[in-house]
Design a protein around this nucleic acid. Structure first.
Lengths: 198, 198
DNA sequence: ACAATAATCAAATAATGGTTTGATTGTTCA
DNA sequence: TGAACAATCAAACCATTATTTGATTATTGT
């Protein structure tokens, strides 16, 4: 039975990259399928061949895959035998680098999670994994407090504070600014560890 | 010359409140004029009597007036004779309280500033005032470093970190949560001052 | 070579939703 | 009372845009 995809054609990855970019620039509702398609030299209708679910499908994929990138790294870090301070520093670096290296997806995660939450089919799994991510930060901080490496703080609030600051990086970061992602990550890690000094 | 508005009718304030709420819930592009109007028992067309500029006009007004509230308070704080630490604490409280007490406008500021930036007529003045606000935080921190009350930090990055965390409050704050605005403000101020300890 | 299918497009479809218009209602004040 | 006007509505208008449909083109395995 003969068939097989051609290869001089666009792939799923290209489309998601284009979608993330347009979502970043115009927001989900402001983005048009035509804009996304044009980004990679297609017409709007063609996108439905790759993503039968249309615009919603694109959003779900962009956000889910964006979350995956960071979640995988954080999971790996949590398995290593590190001090709370070192573990926290690595998690911060992983998140900030991931945002600065994939700005469009990062911004879409910040601005359009709300929109995804209104898509019942995607909602539950997304929320669960997003919460898991937050739990990782909380656990490391709690562990640091328990062993006396960190001072006592209100862990839920401290975590929200940290996450808000990290998310916001996707709003102000500019690829050709004074600092690169690694330098920003280092400074932010310094801030949080200073705040946690006993 | 006889005229005079009736009084059992909606005022500018009511409309902006409704608009902020719908912008918060659906985002600017996702919000419909009909939804906003219905919130206060009007029809979509009637909104044009109060805001001839339509939907854009509503966004501009919501964001500008939201920014005013916080800017006025911060300006007043900057004039007082306070130590850098006390001044910073008061600014943090003013901002967080303002967000928690006016959640819809706060969220709109976070999520829809981008949209406003695409409205040339409103852009410049908004950006200028937003930058002024950021400068206030920078100055206080710089002053604290200069007089040795604060340790040396990368002021631009520290400021963005702080602003990101504060903005994010409008995303996760819930009016009937464990802590009220004042308590959250106190904890966040503790975090920043701890991070700035020499 | 050819049948099957992946990838694409152009054009039609169908809503949706911002904005305009003209009429209606009620209030104000001279 | 009545002229003038603010506030509102219902319905029309119009543009935009997600999605569907029916070709068309290329590629691939047999």
């Amino acid at each position: 039975m003969p068939r097989k995809p051609a290869h001089q054609t666009v792939g799923r990855r290209d489309i998601l990259k284009a979608a993330a970019l347009i979502f970043q620039q115009r927001g989900y509702h402001g983005a048009t399928m035509a804009e996304i398609a044009m980004q990679i030299g297609l017409t709007a209708g063609s996108l439905y061949h790759h993503f039968p679910g249309g615009k919603q499908d694109l959003l779900v994929a962009v956000l889910n895959e964006g979350l995956d990138v960071v979640l995988e790294q954080v999971d790996a870090i949590m398995l290593q035998p590190l001090s709370p301070a070192d573990m926290l520093r690595q998690m911060i670096e992983a998140q900030i680098m991931s945002v600065t290296e994939n700005l469009a997806a990062g911004a879409a995660m910040v601005f359009e999670s709300r929109t995804l939450l209104e898509i019942p089919a995607a909602r539950e799994s997304f929320v669960r994994r997003r919460d898991t991510f937050e739990q990782c930060y909380r656990q490391v901080i709690e562990r640091g407090i328990a062993c006396g490496d960190f001072r006592e703080v209100d862990v839920p609030i401290f975590t929200k504070t940290l996450l808000g600051a990290h998310n916001w990086v996707s709003v102000w970061y500019r690829p050709n600014g004074r600092l690169d992602g690694a330098q920003i990550a280092a400074r932010m890690a310094d801030t949080w560890l200073a705040a946690l000094r006993p």
